[in-house]
Design a protein around this nucleic acid. Sequence first.
DNA 1: GGCTAGACGGAAACGATTCTCATTCCGATT
DNA 2: AATCGGAATGAGAATCGTTTCCGTCTAGCC
Lengths: 152, 152
Amino acid sequence: MSTEPLATIDTELDEQITDLLRRSDQRFTKGRRALVEALLAGGQPMTIHQVLETDTRLAQSSAYRNLVVLEAAGVVTRIVTNDDFARYELAEHLTHHHHHLICSSCGDVTDFALDDQAEAGLDAALHKIAAATGFTVEAHRLDLVGVCSDCD
Amino acid sequence: MSTEPLATIDTELDEQITDLLRRSDQRFTKGRRALVEALLAGGQPMTIHQVLETDTRLAQSSAYRNLVVLEAAGVVTRIVTNDDFARYELAEHLTHHHHHLICSSCGDVTDFALDDQAEAGLDAALHKIAAATGFTVEAHRLDLVGVCSDCD
DNA sequence: GGCTAGACGGAAACGATTCTCATTCCGATT
DNA sequence: AATCGGAATGAGAATCGTTTCCGTCTAGCC
């Protein structure tokens, strides 16, 4: 497998991922590396189909399985929208905290970030809620649903 | 069908729904009324299975079909989480703007609202983003993912 | 009463995801 | 470098929530 990587995983990222996987007793194999490279090259949340198209050497069953492994290890995040396909992207702590623009017409997902002030305000409000409800917060998800400029 | 409604749809709500449906050339039939009653009685987002259990007179195929109709008409909203079941609840404009606490352990979804100030701040920030990206915003979705007090 | 378009319900079809299992790969050990 | 053990892989089959089909029934209308 693997001849021409679509995107290069630099040493630091490589070590982070290897480490994350090791914590779940998993190895950073070639197939998993190819998945991460595809996601890195994609630059935005991708469906399994998109990933498989990007790198035809990947077997569908392995892609599904390994994305589950990578998600469990905290390397990638699974995003569910309203269309029928799950999407994956690199986890936030390997990139940066962000949110999603979801196109209700074509299903495409792109990333965006709030400015620091808005994010801080949001965070404070959410902590209040969490405290009031006895809910242990792991993450917050903020999506904008609308129509992207392509579909408009 | 329909003998003992689980929850009563007051006149105002009834008219609103009838009107929404009429705009998509659909009628507010007994089966659809039963669905809305079940959702109303549930008081929180429900899976199809929960809806069907609530009212055993409902046929599965009709429930799925009618929920699609009701969603297209803007009467209900479909919520997709990370577990395997889609959930439905009454649309925001028939209730009030709110967000979701999603339990990553049991999949349960409950509603919460931000205080007005936080919501306004969020809204302002999102409008900025939308303007900058050429994205036409239809709605925003804010979910808190974590562990509910039952699962803790 | 009949007529017609739409709604209904049971069952079959669909499709994204998961499972199975035989095979291959990887790393450690002699 | 040969071997062994356990994990990873890939092709296809199985799963299961959801959707669609299709014959039947209803509601509304003349």
